[in-house]
Design a protein around this nucleic acid. Structure first.
Lengths: 220, 220
DNA sequence: AGAGTTATTTTGACTAATCAAAATAGTTGG
DNA sequence: CCAACTATTTTGATTAGTCAAAATAACTCT
């Protein structure tokens, strides 16, 4: 069985490879895992020996099929657990990420399947992140963000790609959660400011970096 | 924070000290944890240095107040998780012990409280084992067992104190679960056999060792 | 092309938890 | 009361995962 550390390395390589093909540089992997670069190098070599990922020295890493299978399963656990914590236990969506980081390594495949059924086989977690299927398929649709979308149009938030508690509390407080509707009234790339209108008449301003974390689609 | 290993040592000292005061011998602790005796000695010395238990060399160990507090919290997590797995996820009671062994170390106190509320603050888990309260109180009532109770009387099973999957599947198959009623028709200490009658007319025979794992009370 | 910067890898050391096997203490039976 | 047995502790090694800091490779900029 893969240890907690192994599962975390594989999961973060998956998350950082965004889609599938590019190499993930050691630096970003080490940063994501909060370890020093040398530690990541050592661990990656061991994982490569185990056939879970491919290491191209000085360039980066890429998951093998086996590594990807494990990583997707961990991600599925993470996101289903988050959904459970919000839907069933009524926890605040800003807190469930940290909880799921622990639970994703302790939930068995059988418990996972039963959670999935209890929740009605959800496709997204509370942040709008897609939940990999048991077979390892994951929706990889590309969305515009509040930093890149057209202004003026009516939009719906589909996903908030940032897990920090502070950010999510801010988003919650500003009505920026998946499903919410809004439009971008103004975007100034010089000042780095994005202004939003909510249907209830409220307005929100945020920086482009934050705006880039919020994915939207045109209102259907 | 206590590591998984530390939580397991403390939990097993609690379970083996049965009540509170006696010293738990190193041998039984090592056996319960499935480690060699030397490992248990080393770990116990470290835990004693941390003030989580008291080590009397060559005699055994006993929890301190701090160690007991942690152990009770882990046990509470274990038993509430088991209850959740059976009640909410409809898992077989013979399998939930192994699952809970993992989850007890990953569930936060906040999730624990919410699980407790979801389940309606249960007092026993699916095996009839008492669930420690958040304050650390645990019901320590002493019951007779099928190996020690009077014969002929009408009884109700209150608890099955054995977690192995095989034993629990046997118990389930023989109708021996908490709440079930029965009476002991015969007990032969020479042959080591105990015979039971069920209200539905069925009979069950089992050895005294197994009978000792099943706690009963006179039917109210 | 060479100097400087940046990313990565290497090396050496450390901690937690474990095992195997030798040493020691305690207990018990003749 | 001593020999033998049993339980416990000690000692020496091992593994997984980590950090700090030195070494190396690669890239960039004039």
């Amino acid at each position: 069985m893969a240890t907690v550390a192994v599962e975390n390395y594989l999961k973060h390589v998956l998350l950082l490879s965004d889609g599938a093909e590019e190499l993930v540089p050691m630096g970003s992997l080490a940063a994501a895992l909060a370890v020093v670069p040398g530690t990541a190098t050592a661990m990656v070599k061991a994982l490569a020996d185990d056939g879970l990922l491919e290491h191209q020295p000085r360039l980066g890493v890429r998951l093998t099929t086996r590594g990807r299978r494990i990583a997707l399963n961990v991600l599925r656990k993470h996101r289903l657990v988050e959904t459970f914590l919000v839907e069933t236990l009524k926890m605040d969506w800003s807190k469930v990420h940290a909880e799921a980081e622990q639970l994703e390594h302790a939930v068995s495949d059988e418990v996972l399947d039963r959670l999935d059924a209890l929740l009605g086989h959800p496709r997204q977690d509370p942040h709008g992140d897609p939940i990999p299927s048991r077979a390892g398929k994951i929706d990889s649709q590309v969305y515009a963000t509040l930093a890149t979308c057209a202004t003026g149009r009516r939009l719906r938030i589909v996903r908030v790609t940032e897990q920090s508690e502070e950010f999510l509390r801010f988003a919650e407080g500003s009505g920026l959660r998946p499903g919410a509707e809004l439009s971008v009234t103004e975007r100034n790339l010089v000042s780095g400011l994005v202004a939003l209108d909510r249907p209830d008449g409220g307005t929100v301003a945020l920086g482009v970096a934050a705006a880039g974390k919020i994915l939207v689609e045109p209102r259907g």
